[in-house]
Nucleic acid binder design. Sequence first.
DNA 1: GCTGGCACTCGGGTGGAGCGAGTGCCAAAC
DNA 2: GTTTGGCACTCGCTCCACCCGAGTGCCAGC
Lengths: 338, 338
Amino acid sequence: MLSERRLEVLRAIVQDYVGTEEPVGSKALTERHRLGVSPATIRNDMAVLEEEGYIAQPHTSAGRIPTDKGYRLFVDKLAGVKPLSSPERRAIQNFLEGAVDLDDVVGRTVRLLAQLTRQVAVVQYPSLTRSTVRHVELLSLAPARLMLVLITDTGRVEQRMIDCPAPFGEVALADLRARLNSRVVGRRFADVPRLVQDLPESFEAEDRPTVSTVLATLLENLVEETEERLLIGGTANLTRFGHDFPMMIRPVLEALEEHVVLLKLLGEAGQPGMTVRIGHENAHEGLTSTSVVAVGYGSGDEAVAKLGVVGPTRMDYPGTMGAVRAVARYVGQILAES
Amino acid sequence: MLSERRLEVLRAIVQDYVGTEEPVGSKALTERHRLGVSPATIRNDMAVLEEEGYIAQPHTSAGRIPTDKGYRLFVDKLAGVKPLSSPERRAIQNFLEGAVDLDDVVGRTVRLLAQLTRQVAVVQYPSLTRSTVRHVELLSLAPARLMLVLITDTGRVEQRMIDCPAPFGEVALADLRARLNSRVVGRRFADVPRLVQDLPESFEAEDRPTVSTVLATLLENLVEETEERLLIGGTANLTRFGHDFPMMIRPVLEALEEHVVLLKLLGEAGQPGMTVRIGHENAHEGLTSTSVVAVGYGSGDEAVAKLGVVGPTRMDYPGTMGAVRAVARYVGQILAES
DNA sequence: GCTGGCACTCGGGTGGAGCGAGTGCCAAAC
DNA sequence: GTTTGGCACTCGCTCCACCCGAGTGCCAGC
C-alpha cells in the first residue's frame, strides 16, 4: 500500500503532466506543489511509484509520466468529478432546448459535448429495444407495397418499405394497423415479439403471409439495422492530442469510423454510473493511447443509450467526467419532455 | 496560348506530382515520359509555364509543382473522366442494394465513396423542397399534442411534435389528415405552401388556430431545420494528405464540422454535371489546400441533392471524378426504385 | 528552336560539441 | 527509519559546420 504522500506525489504528477504535456521531474514538483519535502525525497517516492508501475520515464534522464495504471489509480482514488459551473449548466440547457427533433437533439448533444470537453464526442441514438412504442403506422403505397413507420417515446422514427407476398386490401390494412397498435402502444419494444406473436392467426388465410411479413419486418429487420446508430463530433480536437498526434490520429480516426467497435466500447460501459476506460483497457488496437469516458442516459430512470468522449489518456479526467455526466442528465431531461 | 508540347509538359508534371508527391524536375520528366526533347528544352517550357502561373517551385533548386491554376487547366482541358472498371461498378451496385432505408443508403454511399476515392466523402440528404410528398401523417399523442410525420418519395421521413393552441378532436384530426393528404400527396414539396394556403378556412372557427399551427410547422419549422442534412466519412483518409498533413488536417477537420460551410460549398456546385473546385477557389479558409469534387444526384432527371469528396489539391482528378459520377448515378437508381 | 555544357543555389542529411534537466546513490543529519 | 544535500552520470536536444546532389538558369553552338 502506498503512503499518503506517495499518492499525493502521483496526483501531482498526473495534474502537472496533464497540464504541461511534458514529463515532470522531482524539482518541478516541489516547486509547483507544497509537498513539504525536498526533491531528493520525491525522487525516492518516484522510484517506488515507478517500481509499482504507476509512472514511467520515457527515457533515462527525463521526468516521469503516468502509466495507464497510474491514471487508473488517479481516477479511482484520487480524483473526484468536477461539477460544472452554473453558467455552463445554463448554456447546456439553453442549447439543448432549441432542438426540434431527435436527430437535432443528438446532433446538438454531440456538438455540445465536443465543445465542453474539447475532445471527440460520441452519442448513441436511443436504443429501440429499450424504448417504448408510441405508435405504429402502416401506409399503402402500391397494391403490394407497404410502408411501416415506428415511433417511440424517445422520439425515434424508423420506417421500412415492405413488399407484400400478396395484395393487401385497405380494410385489412386498417384492421392490422388498429390491432397492432392496440397491442403494442405503450409497451416496451423488447416485449413486442411476445405481444404480436399470434396476430397472423386472426386474419384470413390469404392475408396471413402479408401480416407475417409485416411483423417480421417490424421485429427483425428494423431492429437489427437501426438498433445501433451513433453520431460523432469534434474530431478536430484530435489535433490537440499532443506532440505525437500525427502518429496517433490515424488509427484513432479509423477506429472512430468503425461504428461497430465504438458501440461495443460504449456497450461495455457498466450500466450504473460512469465508466472510464484508460489506454490499453480499450480492447481496440487503435485506441490504446486514448481514454473513453462513457455514461448511460435515458428519459427515465433506465438508460436507453450511451454517450461519452474519446480523448488522450492524458486528459483532464475530473473535468471531462463532470461534463459527460452533466450532458447526459440534461439530454435525459429533454428526452423525457418530448 | 500555350503550345501543344507545353500542355503536354503540364500534364506530365501534374501526373508525376500526383503520383510521387514530390516536386518534379526536368530530367525526371524526360525519363518518365516520351516527350521527344531534351531536359534543357523542358526547362525552357517550364520557365514559360511558371511565368504564366501554372506551376511553381517551392524553393530554388527544387522541381516544380502545379499551382491551383495549373490544376484548373489540367482538369478543364487535359484530363478526362476515368470510367470505373466493371468489377468496381458491380461492387457499387451490390453494396448499395443492401440498404434498408434512406439513412442506410446515405450511410453506405458515404462509406463507398470514401473507400473508392480514398478521400473524405460528403453526402447531402435528399432535399425536402425538391422531393415529392408521399404521405403526411398526423397522430394525436395527447389532447393538445400532435405528431406530424412527413414522408417523401426519396424515402425521407421527418417528424415534429406540435403543441396545439386548443384541444383537437379525433374527428377534426381525421378530417385534417384526409384533406391535407388529398391536396399534397404526389406534389412537389415546394408547391405545398400554395396548395394548403386556404385550408384553415374550411374548418370550424375553434379549430382554425390548430390547423394553422400544423401547417406552419409543416412549412417552416420542418423545412428549415431538415432541409440541409449531410453525412461525412473517410476522415481517416486525411492522413494521406502529404508530408505536411499535420498542419493541414486541423483546419480541414474544422471546416468539415461546419456543415453550413460544406452545404454552401456543395450548393455552389453548378447544377448540370460535375463541379471541381480547386484550392483557393474554395471560399472557406480551411479548405484552400483542398479540392472539392461534387455532383448532383436524384431519383429522376432532376438533382435532389449533392454528393462529393474533399481531398488534397494534389489528387487523381480523373479517377476521383469517375468515382463520384458513378456513385451518384447508382444512388439515383436506388432512390428511384425505393 | 533545340541541345549540351557549366556554374550556381539551396535543401537535406550527417556528425560532433555543448548544454541542461533529471536521475540514482550515498553519507550525513534529524 | 526517514529525509536531505551533494555529486557523478546519462542522454535527449539544439546548434553548427559540412558535404552532397538534384535542379535550375544561362549561353554558345548546332
